[in-house]
């Protein structure tokens, strides 16, 4: 009887130790899995970028279309005070930035685009995982990035560059919209009509 207990005890001990070790392994696996999935994105990205480049030859600046589309989705979600939708679009925007191919631009433009994308991607990541007030903060800087990007890449879309003087302790913030009517993404329903059109793109 005593022997049986000792054996049981030993078995349990081994089990606990193994569980502890395998937990650690699982953690490491997760850590390793992240860059791998990124690589897969890049693989996809190259494919997408190729097809986009082909399309770009036909009709100009389609490569940045996906970025603008998901940017506008975030904007619309923030106008509607919808944290979840903004987060979803933010996640997609991260992938869009990964897919963006800068090879058709001059080396100076490439450097500028690289800086913009690196920064913008980080803000999109934050938008995909933050509470709404943080999303809005990051959206403010993301907007600047996207505006600067379009200044280089151009776009076929008709866009309005809007400005809200109240946001960020009255330092103000810009955003892009596809319609002329002001709908404020920084305050949402609290101050829906705050802002003005600064300029029209296309």
């Amino acid at each position: 009887m005593k022997k049986a207990r000792t054996t049981m005890g030993a078995l349990i001990m081994t089990l606990v130790t193994i569980t502890a070790i395998s937990c650690k392994d699982a953690n490491q696996d997760n850590g390793a899995a992240e860059p791998m999935s990124n690589e897969m994105y890049q693989e996809d990205g190259t494919k997408n970028a190729d097809s986009e480049r082909l399309m770009a030859n036909d009709s100009g600046n389609t490569a940045s279309d996906a970025i603008i589309d998901n940017y506008l989705k975030i904007k619309n979600a923030l106008v509607a005070d919808n944290q979840e939708e903004a987060a979803k679009a933010g996640g997609m925007l991260v992938a869009n930035f990964d897919d963006f191919d800068t090879s058709g631009y001059s080396s100076e433009e490439q450097q500028e685009l690289k800086d913009i994308i690196e920064d913008a991607k980080e803000h999109a990541e934050h938008i995909s995982e933050s509470p709404m007030e943080h999303q809005r903060e990051h959206f403010g800087i993301l907007s600047k990035d996207v505006i600067d990007m379009i200044a280089i890449t151009g776009t076929d879309k008709k866009l309005y560059q809007d400005f809200c003087p109240m946001y960020n302790d009255k330092k103000g913030a810009q955003w892009l919209s596809s319609s002329e009517e002001i709908k404020n993404p920084y305050f949402g329903s609290k101050m829906m009509n705050c802002g003005e059109v600064q300029k029209q793109i296309n």
Partner: peptide, 17 residues
Amino acid sequence: KIIALVLLVAFIGIQFI
């Protein structure tokens, strides 16, 4: 007693990882 012993051994065990 056995549970305490097992926990102790596991605790010591994970220190070596």
